[in-house]
Write a protein that binds this DNA or RNA. Structure first.
Lengths: 208, 208, 208, 208
DNA sequence: TATGAATGAGACTTCATTCAT
DNA sequence: GATGAATGAAGTCTCATTCAT
């Protein structure tokens, strides 16, 4: 709960490199074998450092996952920035949707751990809470965004729509993880975007 | 991989009862605490049997989860039977959707483990494969069903639509797990059904 | 604090034997090498059991020491019983002193761990507290005993005298531990008894 | 055993200061948390030096404790000097007792580590040996002193009396450590001094 | 056949000590 | 010399699994 994810804030570049090395290695292993199955010794060994070095940077195994989650949260925040541009309300829905979805797709392709974390795979209750908080925050922002686009939406509905939209992005990620086939991935993306467009269109731009 | 899930197929009712007892108990614990965190001793103790007895029914811990997955698969099959009735093609989309979704909702409410298994939470690679096979089979059946309803769909598209539809059901389950609030659950169900209807309607009943 | 010393109360004789075996082995090692230096693996190995077996009986290493302390407390209680006999007030001081000291000497000779625990050697704060509670209780009883013998003593003084007397016993134990030489031990016992007699005599049987 | 306590005998004041700093810091931590529990890194950090620096002054952790024991030995020697003044034999026992005990009380109040070391709390066997040697030396000196005061004492008896007297001082220290209450401490000191006086009086100044 | 005590590999973590910078 | 990141042996403890009774 109150544990810090990182033991000491390293200012020197060497330390920072080691820290990143640990995180990246852990990320790979968590995706490959899952959090519980991945041992701290395996992380250290694959990272080419000693187990002691790992524990200089992280107080325990959970902290490694938390640090990854933090990194994910930061990245997600950046992505949302691009949504809240002035002209958003004048853009056609298709473009908006691309703006919403594509950055996340890039993120999850680049860092598959984040997908893992997002999907809440095998995390301890502690981590799940962190993950949940992040989700809640992103949903709140998305709801706010929807209300900017469609002021007639009441708060409850906007929240619901945000929840569902977020879940659809999650769904898309999980489908893309399932198969590496490029054609299939393109098809799935098209299909899901079409579904989301069909859902959001009427909700955000109603006639009456 | 090639290990059998169940050691001996018990015909006698007592053995069957014990077996079910173990599975039900394991199901509860897996949902409460996760697969990795749940110990075989905990399952045995909560089930009121000895650890030795548990190992008479299952060769190892994985086998317990596999047996649960099998049970889930059987249940799912039963649910699908109700879809393939003669009159399906004459029913309005809303009713079809309810027929597709509602049984699954009941199933997951009755047996939360299945939701857990379906969502692929913290299962070993071994189990994930099983789970994946089940998914593939259900998707194939669903695609077949869609082609029955809309013969103009080519196989690829039908498969895609089935994949997305299945994923939406999964999404719905995950959202329902997130909150126990009845009003919220009702809202979410309505919202997701509306989305799926908006998606499947045009796909299955095109103008031309 | 709230941890139990023993995991399950074993009623069967085999379990009881294993438990005693662990405690006796631990006792030896604690005396030989000290608590911190003695490893749980060493205890298990010397006891001829597996490390897992040890942890079936005790939740952690501290619990082993606590259990020893409990055993000591029980033994000490028994010793005190013999003090509170009817005729105590009519006995000459020398006899009383022997009755007070000799049983403790036997106890510490038979079970050197108890001396170790009594002397508070290298125990964790947790254990120290237990040890302290025991001491407090014994001192209270001793003070009560002194007041029975010498009703004119006020409570504070009686407590002080008890504290000092108890400390002298401790002192004696520590001196006996220091050397195994029989003659030396006899000399030391005589000397310390003489000192204590010289102290308690006037306190308990004052002229005025 | 044969390791030197201090790596280089520093004549320069800076080195000496650092050395003292390390020892004082270690002393505090040993008293607070015990020898085993205190880490070398903790000592270095609290002292405001690097762990590498600490290991320039001491070859290993034991050496730090040994150096403290040495410092204690030196201090104790100084205290004994004041005992061996010419006029000692003409002083009344009460004054002699104060001269014997009070300096030790001051020493232990000023440097609680010494009490810790004296009481043999959680020291490794290695240190215990050193501590024992010191004790032996002090006892020898005390015995010699007693024989100066009371020439009729044979060597064995004088040694015994010294052993017991030394142990009583130790006892007193341990009682004072047990409670910080000023009134209680004063009471305990009075009581113990009375006991020791009652013991030494007849021994040192016999009628015949 | 049922029991549950026992096993032991292996997980997490600590910390005295070294050595590249 | 000083620094502190890195090392890795070793300790505590867990838990899937076995097997004597």
């Amino acid at each position: 709960m109150s544990k810090n994810s990182i033991r000491s804030i390293p200012r020197q570049s060497r330390s920072q490199k080691t820290l990143d090395l640990i995180l990246d290695t852990a990320a790979e292993l968590f995706v490959e074998a899952g959090y519980e199955t991945t041992t701290t010794n395996a992380i250290a060994e694959k990272a080419g450092i000693s187990i002691g070095a790992l524990y200089r940077y992280f107080p325990d195994k959970d902290a490694v996952l938390k640090a990854l989650a933090d990194r994910y949260q930061q990245q997600s925040h950046l992505l949302f920035e691009t949504l809240f541009v002035e002209d958003a309300r004048y853009l056609p829905p298709e473009v908006l949707l691309d703006r919403l979805i594509d950055p996340f797709l890039s993120l999850y392709r680049k860092y598959p751990v984040y997908a893992h974390i997002l999907l809440g795979a095998d995390v301890s209750a502690d981590i799940a809470a962190v993950s949940c908080d992040m989700e809640a925050e992103m949903i709140a922002k998305l709801a706010e965004f929807f209300r900017m686009l469609a002021p007639h939406l009441d708060k409850t509905r906007a929240h619901l729509v945000a929840v569902v939209s977020k879940a659809v992005v999650k769904l898309l990620i999980s489908l893309l993880i399932a198969s590496r086939d490029a054609q299939y991935q393109a098809d799935v993306i098209r299909e899901v975007k079409q579904m989301l467009l069909g859902y959001l269109g009427p909700v955000l731009r109603p006639e009456s």
